[in-house]
Design a protein around this nucleic acid. Structure first.
Length: 269
DNA sequence: CGCACCCCCTGCCGGC
DNA sequence: TGCCGGCAGGGGGTGC
C-alpha cells in the first residue's frame, strides 16, 4: 500500500505526537524483513519524540539523546493509534506506548516492513539515495542525468529508489500516463520535452495524491483510521479493460520486471 | 555496471 | 463448499 503519498499521509497524522515520550515498547514478533534487534526497546524507552520526517517510503523519528527510530511499511504495513488498554490483534507486531495513554501499533501481515532503532547517524544505512520529489522537485535536467546511462525502461527508473525516492507501482503508472510516455520506453531515449512533462507529472501526481490522503486500496488508512481518496482518481492503475478517462481507449496491462504496468496506447507514446 | 528473475510472507479472489 | 493457482502497494540477492 504505502508509496510516498501514503507514507506522507501517515507522517502528517503522526505529527501531533511530536513532543510525546516513549514510555514502553512491546514486541510480539521480531521477524520482519530484518529481525528486530535485541537492543530495540533499550534504544527507545524513555526517549522523547523531537521530529518525524520522511525520505521516499521511509519514515524516521528523531529522538532525544541523538537516537532515531526508522520505519518502512513494506507492502502491507501500517501504524495505528489505539488506547494503550486496547488488546492486540493478529499481525500487531510492535506496540509503542506513549505517555499520553496512547499506543502506536505497527501492524504488518506480510512482514515485509522494517523497524530499526539506534543512533541517528545509523539512518544512512537504510535511507535511499534518490531525491525525494516532495522535498525538492526534480527538474527535466535531473531526469536527463538519471536517464543518460540507463538501458532499461523508464518505469524501472521511476521506481528505482536510488534514482527517485518514493515512487512505487501505482504512481509509476499514473505518472507515466499523465506525462504521455509508455512504460516500456527506454529511459535513455526519452526526449527533453518529454522529460519536462515527466518532471511536471511526477510533482503534480504526487502532490495531488498527498492532498487526497493517498490511495486507499486494501484498506489503507492513516493512524486514525482515515482513508485516502486518490484511488478514485486513478487514470490507469488496475484499470485494464476499462476506458482511459482522457480518450476512452481501452487501458492495457503489461508485465515489466514481474510487476503490472497499466497504460493507454492512445495517450502514451 | 545495469537489469531480469526469484524470493521473502500472508490474504484474497476467481476458477474448477 | 473447498482447494489451488495467481496476484498484491515492498525491496534485496543473485547471476547474467
Amino acid at each position: 500500500m504505502p508509496e510516498l503519498p501514503e507514507v506522507e499521509t501517515i507522517r502528517r497524522s503522526l505529527l501531533p505526537y511530536v513532543g510525546s515520550r516513549i514510555v514502553g515498547v512491546e514486541i510480539r514478533e521480531r521477524r520482519l524483513r530484518r529481525t528486530i534487534a535485541d537492543d530495540f526497546t533499550g534504544q527507545l524507552r524513555g526517549r522523547r519524540v523531537e521530529s518525524i520526517d520522511r525520505r521516499g517510503k521511509y519514515l524516521f523519528f528523531g529522538l532525544d539523546g541523538d537516537r532515531a527510530l526508522l520505519a518502512h511499511l513494506g507492502m502491507t504495513g501500517c501504524l495505528e493509534r489505539r488506547p494503550s488498554s486496547a488488546p492486540s490483534s493478529r499481525h500487531d507486531h510492535v506496540r509503542f506506548l506513549l505517555d499520553s495513554d496512547t499506543a502506536l501499533v505497527f501492524h504488518d501481515p506480510r512482514r515485509f516492513g522494517i523497524l530499526w532503532a539506534g543512533p541517528r547517524n545509523g539512518l544512512t544505512e537504510f535511507l535511499p539515495t534518490g531525491q525525494d520529489p516532495l522535498l525538492r522537485p526534480l527538474s527535466a535536467q535531473d531526469l536527463r542525468q538519471l536517464a543518460r546511462n540507463r538501458r532499461g525502461p523508464i518505469k524501472n527508473l521511476l521506481m528505482d529508489q536510488n534514482a527517485v525516492a518514493g515512487i512505487g507501482n501505482i504512481y509509476a503508472s499514473e505518472i507515466l500516463h499523465r506525462a504521455g510516455i509508455r512504460p516500456r520506453r527506454r529511459a535513455a531515449r526519452i526526449y527533453v520535452p518529454e522529460l519536462t512533462r515527466l518532471a511536471d507529472a511526477i510533482h503534480e501526481v504526487l502532490e495531488h495524491a498527498v492532498r487526497l490522503g493517498g490511495s486507499s486500496i486494501s484498506d489503507f488508512h492513516d493512524i486514525n483510521g482515515r482513508t485516502g481518496y486518490f484511488q478514485l482518481e486513478h487514470a490507469v492503475y488496475d484499470r485494464d479493460g476499462k476506458p482511459c478517462p482522457r480518450c476512452q481507449t481501452t487501458i492495457r496491462r503489461i508485465v515489466q520486471s514481474g510487476r503490472s504496468s497499466f497504460y493507454c496506447r492512445t495517450c502514451q507514446h
